[in-house]
Design a protein around this nucleic acid. Structure first.
Lengths: 232, 232
DNA sequence: TAAATATATTAATAATATCTTAATAATTTC
DNA sequence: GAAATTATTAAGATATTATTAATATATTTA
């Protein structure tokens, strides 16, 4: 029996979801705002969360960030169709999936099944060894040991450099704007971040690249941002 | 192994369906009236139901209503051709699909496969990774990664080129005037945009087309505008 | 705690990529 | 073939990122 936490300030929607999920054999635990959801999470074994974005007290995005600080269970975000999809995407919120309202019940169920399947199988049993190890090509970041290696050689980064590199490597392949990098690494509003990031990027390149002028790992996507190349 | 409940009072038809579905690797459980079907459902894990409408004791529609009270598995209704299709449709019975008798075995199998896929996997629904990927023929734009590939080969576009190509590919097949392209990509009034667009179009063609003089993807519709050919 | 050291930010400027403009050529359509 | 439309080319303008060095802030160590 799997427990699914459904959190939305619209009680009708929560009720409807509960009915669909009960039919599927899932047990539903309800919450109506982010704070309540976090409480439920603390006191119950939850296998999957369905989380509305627009909510009072603590919205879905804040709540998700809190959850992600110490949990990796699957989260499906709910959003009204009107909310700009690009926006949701840009948030880069660490959700596993999202559905726009109004949703198709079969789709909801399919996504829940898929999330549960992913979570219960392999995925969750990542070994301690590689849990916090991020790599691309010959660049390896071990977040347990806080070490960075390039071609087997350890490289010393400052905390900020390390955090930027970890963030980008964790999400290798994806391009992040200067603002997104700043906000993710500093956990603060980005203001006049261009230069700050540029300087750090240069320092990182000096340390991890053979030829910083022609970076192999840390690439600029002109007009958009930076990314760590996915070489695996 | 998926279990499919087939319910029809015509034993010949049930037998025939069983043969078809067995060949496809499905396990068939049989019932010959609505009440029997409900009993079977109670005692077995059923993944899909094929249900005849005209049956003794409890007809298909009543049975379906019962089923829908506590289950949301896919149901394919069977009906004789004589029964008015519109009527069946209008019943709005919460069936996922229906087939008229006499049916084409290939169609039956296709619908069963599709039902199973939709129910168990994400099958027809867009997966998260798919959500922002636009393609036509061998041209693939991944807006998550901001990459463009032609024939598996990555191609580098400037931001403006990328935005134009994304806009047209997202709406492949449709023709957009120079003004429309400008307004959509620049999010500004188009003024003297002809030349600007023309130059960008040329650059894009140079990058994505084998022979820019005879473009395969980015075509001009003389006097109207440009489009990305729909090759799928 | 004060000095030493390491790290982060700011400022100024350079380098480079990209966009737009202009002038002209090539096509298409009637 | 003429008018309208699109294509091409190259150069000047603009925007974005890179670099360097100096200053500020934080952390460590004596």
């Amino acid at each position: 029996m799997y427990n699914i936490l459904v959190c939305d300030d619209d009680k009708e929607i929560v009720k409807a979801i509960e009915i669909y999920l009960n039919k599927e054999g899932y047990n539903v635990i309800k919450a109506f705002d982010g704070e309540e959801a976090l409480k439920v999470l603390k006191n119950n074994t939850i296998h999957l969360i369905i989380l509305d974005i627009m909510m009072p007290k603590k919205d879905g995005i804040e709540t998700l960030n809190e959850i992600r600080k110490d949990k990796s269970i699957p989260v499906i975000m709910l959003s009204a169709k009107s909310e700009d999809e690009d926006k949701i995407n840009g948030l880069n919120l660490g959700a596993d999936d999202y559905i726009t309202k109004p949703f198709n019940p079969l789709e909801l169920i399919a996504r829940v099944n898929s999330g549960i399947r992913r979570y219960t199988k392999l995925g969750n049993f990542e070994t301690n060894e590689n849990k916090n190890v991020f790599k691309t090509g010959e660049l390896i970041i071990d977040d347990n040991l806080k070490t960075v290696k390039v071609d087997e050689q350890e490289v010393k980064l400052t905390p900020t450099e390390y955090n930027i590199l970890k963030f980008l490597t964790k999400n290798k392949g994806k391009v992040y704007s200067i603002e997104q990098i700043y906000e993710n690494v500093w956990e603060d509003e980005a203001y006049a971040a261009e230069n700050i990031i540029a300087v750090h990027i240069r320092h990182i390149r000096e340390k991890i690249e053979i030829n910083p002028k022609e970076p192999k790992y840390l690439k600029v996507i002109w007009g958009i941002g930076y990314k760590i190349e996915n070489l695996d």
